[in-house]
Design a protein around this nucleic acid. Structure first.
Length: 110
DNA sequence: ACTTTGACTATAA
DNA sequence: GTTATAGCCAAAG
């Protein structure tokens, strides 16, 4: 398994189901680097170049805030995509975040 | 090899 | 309730 930390992030993000979201910390925790949550977002900078189809809009911070919306082509694209998947976003915050939250550890380790 | 950075998180005030 | 600060660690300069 000679893949970089960033590549692992892409793998997990690619597995996020439709209509669900997860947090940077949850991904980092699944990768065994619980305290490298910042690196998850850092890696996402190249995500669109490695695999543009990565659902980066389904990755938010721990409270469901669309912190990375400015990294999309348009700041409104992230919210639009989430709303298209049935996720209610209001003021850059995902409503019912706990309800749509997807944990890689819970879903992938079972 | 050292310094800076950052799509985070937790704690303190 | 919000705002500030510190810890954290991998990648880029």
């Amino acid at each position: 398994m000679d893949i970089n930390f960033s590549d692992k992030v892409y793998q997990v993000v690619a597995l996020i189901p439709f209509g669900r979201v997860t947090s940077y910390g949850a991904i980092a925790l699944y990768l065994g680097a619980a305290r490298s949550s910042r690196m998850v977002g850092y890696a996402m900078n190249n995500a669109h170049t490695v695999n543009p189809s990565l659902p980066a809009h389904r990755v938010v911070n721990r409270v469901g805030m669309l912190t990375g919306k400015h990294h999309f082509k348009t700041p409104t694209q992230m919210q639009s995509l989430l709303e298209s998947e049935g996720i209610n976003v209001e003021n850059d915050i995902i409503q019912d975040f706990k309800n749509v939250f997807w944990s890689p550890i819970e879903e992938l380790s079972l």
